[in-house]
C-alpha cells in the first residue's frame, strides 16, 4: 500500500471529491495561488481552476458566512481556516447560522458545508493560534466534529464529510501534516462516528483522538516493553457523532480508563466521555477515570515548556502508571 503524508491524504480527498461533484468548491485564505498556507491544497488550482479553488481575503466572518449561504442553495463549499483558532471571528456564522438554520427552519434548509483546517498547539505560536475548539463546536447540536489522527483516517473521513448533508467541522493538525501512513490507492470512505482501536490491550483503555493518539501509542509501547502493561488505544476519530459503544466495549475489557486529549480540562471532550462512561459502565470500572489534558492556562509560547503543557508520551506514561498503581 502506498505511503503518503497526512497533508497529501487530505489533498487527495479534496481532489477526488472535486472530481466527483461539480458543486464542491474549495475556498479560503491562500488556498489557490499560494498553494495553501500549509500546502494542503497545493496543485489544486492548476488542476481545477479558479472557479473551484478560490482565494479569499482575510475575512473569516465574511467568507464562512458566504459559504454557509451558498450551501443553502446547493453548493458544497469546503472552507479552509488557516488555523481553527480563527473560528472565533466567524463564530456567529458557524454556530448561529450553520448550526441552527436547519432547526430554525423546521428542517427545510440544509447546510452541506465543511470547515477544515489545523487546530493544535505545539508549534510555539502562542495563545491566539493554538486553540483546540472541538469541545466548543461539539457543544452545538446541528454540527458534526471530526479530528483525524492518521493519513488513512484523514482521507476517508474528509471524503465522508464532504458528502455529508450536515455541516461538518474538520480539525486537522499542523504537526501531523508531514506524518506518513499507508493509504490505499483505490477509493474508500471512513464513516463519521466510528472509533478505531489503534492498539489492542487488556489492562487499560486509553481513549483519545487527534495527535494525542500518536502520543498514546508511543506511551503504550513503553508500558508494554518496560512495565509489562497491555494498554488499548481507542481513537475516537469523530467527536460528534460519538462512537461511545466502542469505548464501552474497551472499558468492559480493561476496567480502567485514561482519557488523553489536547484540550483544556474544563468542560472538555473528556469531561463528556467521563460522564458517559460512569453513567453507562459504572460497574465495569475498577478505578476512577484519569485524564491527561492540556495544562489549564492559555497556550504558553516558551518552546520547551509548551511541550510540557500539552499531552506528550511522558505525561501519558506517568498518568497510566498512576492509574494502575
Amino acid at each position: 500500500m502506498p505511503q503518503i503524508t497526512y497533508r497529501e491524504a487530505i489533498r487527495h480527498a479534496l481532489a477526488e471529491e472535486l472530481e466527483r461533484d461539480p458543486n464542491v468548491v474549495v475556498m479560503g485564505e491562500e488556498v489557490a495561488q499560494f498553494n495553501g498556507a500549509y500546502k494542503v491544497t497545493e496543485g489544486l488550482l492548476a488542476k481545477f481552476g479558479p472557479k473551484r479553488i478560490v482565494d479569499t481575503p482575510i475575512s473569516e466572518a465574511g467568507f464562512i458566512g458566504l459559504g454557509v449561504g451558498a450551501s443553502m442553495l446547493g453548493i458544497r463549499p469546503v472552507m479552509e481556516l488557516m488555523f481553527w483558532s480563527f473560528y472565533s471571528v466567524a463564530f456567529d456564522q458557524i454556530l448561529n447560522n450553520a448550526a441552527n438554520v436547519r432547526y430554525m427552519s423546521g428542517g427545510l434548509i440544509n447546510c452541506p458545508i465543511v470547515i477544515r483546517g489545523p487546530a493544535n498547539g505545539g508549534t510555539n505560536v502562542g495563545a491566539t493560534h493554538s486553540h483546540t475548539p472541538e469541545n466548543v463546536l461539539a457543544n452545538h447540536p446541528g454540527v458534526k466534529v471530526v479530528v483525524p489522527s492518521t493519513p488513512y483516517d484523514a482521507k476517508g473521513l474528509l471524503k465522508s464529510a464532504i458528502r455529508d448533508n450536515d455541516p461538518v467541522m474538520f480539525l486537522e493538525n499542523t504537526i501531523l501534516y508531514g506524518d506518513k501512513g499507508e493509504v490505499p490507492a483505490e477509493e474508500y470512505l471512513v464513516p463519521l462516528g466510528l472509533a478505531d482501536v489503534k492498539r489492542k490491550g487488556t489492562d487499560l483503555s486509553i481513549v483519545t483522538y487527534g495527535r494525542s493518539v500518536i502520543h498514546s501509542l508511543v506511551a503504550a509501547e513503553v508500558l508494554h516493553k518496560e512495565h509489562g502493561i497491555s494498554a488499548e488505544v481507542v481513537d475516537l476519530r469523530t467527536i460528534r457523532p460519538l462512537d461511545i459503544d466502542t469505548v464501552l466495549q474497551s472499558v468492559a475489557k480493561t476496567h480502567r480508563v485514561l482519557i488523553v486529549e489536547e484540550q483544556k480540562p474544563f468542560a472538555s471532550v473528556g469531561s463528556q466521555l467521563s460522564y458517559m462512561i460512569q453513567r453507562e459502565a459504572f460497574d465495569e470500572l475498577d478505578a476512577p477515570i484519569h485524564r491527561v489534558t492540556t495544562v489549564d492556562a492559555p497556550a504558553i509560547y516558551s518552546p520547551p515548556i509548551e511541550i510540557e503543557q500539552l499531552p506528550n508520551p511522558n505525561r501519558v506514561l506517568k498518568a497510566a502508571l498512576d492509574l494502575l498503581a
Binding site: G62, I64, A70, M72, I75
Partner: peptide, 9 residues
C-alpha cells in the same frame, strides 16, 4: 454574508 453566499451560488 449568507445573502452574499446566495448570490455566489
Amino acid at each position: 454574508p449568507l445573502g452574499t453566499g446566495l448570490a455566489y451560488a
